[in-house]
Design a protein around this nucleic acid. Structure first.
Lengths: 241, 241
DNA sequence: CTTCTTTGCGTAACAATCACCCAAAGATAG
DNA sequence: CTATCTTTGGGTGATTGTTACGCAAAGAAG
């Protein structure tokens, strides 16, 4: 953070923050990473001490090249989770005049997707915790509004990008993928139609990991074909459900 | 604008602006409203004096309830065009550290659609001018990048919302609507298929304005059915092309 | 050992999309 | 004035995609 001191402007300036909605998936339901506010040094200065909030913090005017860098840096500092700035997707600007009572603060909300299997234990359990999307506590500031907006955005984006890529482990099964889609879109699909649609996209590679598929009861394992996906994304595509 | 004076903060704050990409349609091609920088009082303080730029300006920390209000106010002040804050759609945040050499400035880009037929003469011709999208001069700051992003966003949004609503006059013909879609999506469609698709959506009402349609050469006139459109939007829909 | 569940594969009915033809009449050119 | 071109609307059949199912195999449960 830039040095504390005295900074003078001819006109009033707002403070600018980046907030992060980090989505994960545990095979059952969508989860969001939250932090407990106030345990840090400047607690007295912070509003909503003790309540849950989205990870995030102030733009470092001197150091952060873009606001996505702010998101990346603050997430790392607050939860020990490392995500590149390019892994964040912008949700939007929240700028209501009274959203922070201390001073005028506008925030740029971001979301990102992580594989829960790969970050387990990475996060600082003292301060950060994964919550089920259906079971979110009351959040600081307008963070529940931001969370809703981010999820809406994810729901839209899923039609244009294979989010399974980022939320599932490297190797996964079709039922897993379907469950993920159903969790995000909050609907149910027909097993067979879903499988057909996915296979038809051509971005799934069958994985033969040696385990003999004794019965059809054991689902086939797949991994994403990144090349085909990139090609598909370049041409533009729509998934309809 | 808030009074000029001395404003002190413990940490450096960025300046925050809202920029507006205003799209219009003249029956032939998509147009964008630009302003000539520097004719105003504080010209000496302004960078890019004399060059073209998107309308926009600084968030008034004391008066603007949201950043959309900034967009609305600045557009009015600079071009005399009145648009409600809710008529702006957010494109995104542009925050590169060196995008303004004078101080750290981040901007929230917005776009809006207007009926050219209804705003003709409304704009201040001294400072503002409509440019063909294919014929944009070099712009101040990163405004050409912002313009491209806004157009990309419009191109995406057209699949989910009938933009004709906002760009065409109240009463219009199918060829006009098709031409608009072709201008935005930069493709050509088959006349009959386009007509079928549009009619099938159920948001077009035939208008009988008395003029006898002597031949089929005279296109049928339509207006949008706002009720059906709202209903459609509520249920969610996709237009595929 | 019987029944239920889960998985994969397949298919017939329905709907949507695409690439065309046709007729009517204004516009244009001689 | 007439022949030709252009623009509009109303169609239609082939292809493609979507949807709602049935079926068999085999683990899981009782």
């Amino acid at each position: 953070m830039a040095k504390k001191g005295t900074y003078i402007y001819e006109y009033p300036h707002p403070a600018v923050t980046a907030d992060c909605v980090i989505f994960g998936y545990d095979g059952k339901s969508i989860k969001v990473l939250l932090i407990k506010r106030g345990a840090e040094k400047e607690a007295s200065k912070h509003a909503f001490v003790g309540s849950w909030a989205l990870p995030g913090g102030f733009l470092d005017v001197d150091r952060d090249r873009t606001i996505a860098n702010t998101a990346s840096r603050e997430l790392r500092e607050e939860t020990k989770l490392h995500l590149r700035p390019s892994e964040f997707k912008e949700v939007g600007c929240f700028s209501e005049k009274n959203r922070d009572e201390r001073e005028r603060v506008i925030t740029i909300a971001h979301y990102a997707l992580v594989k829960l299997t790969e970050v387990e234990g990475d996060t600082d359990a003292e301060k950060a915790e994964w919550y089920n999307l259906g079971d979110i506590p009351s959040l600081a500031f307008d963070h529940d509004q931001i969370l809703r907006a981010a999820f809406m955005r994810l729901k839209r984006d899923i039609h244009f990008e294979p989010v399974g890529f980022e939320l599932l482990p490297e190797v996964f099964t079709l039922p897993q993928l379907q469950n993920l889609y159903e969790s995000i879109l909050e609907t149910k699909f027909d097993r067979r139609n879903f499988a057909n649609k996915m296979k038809h996209l051509g971005i799934l590679d069958e994985v033969d990991d040696g385990t003999p598929r004794n019965g059809t009861r054991t689902p086939i394992k797949y991994r994403f074909n990144k090349d085909n996906y990139d090609e598909l994304k370049r041409r533009g595509f729509q998934l309809e459900f």
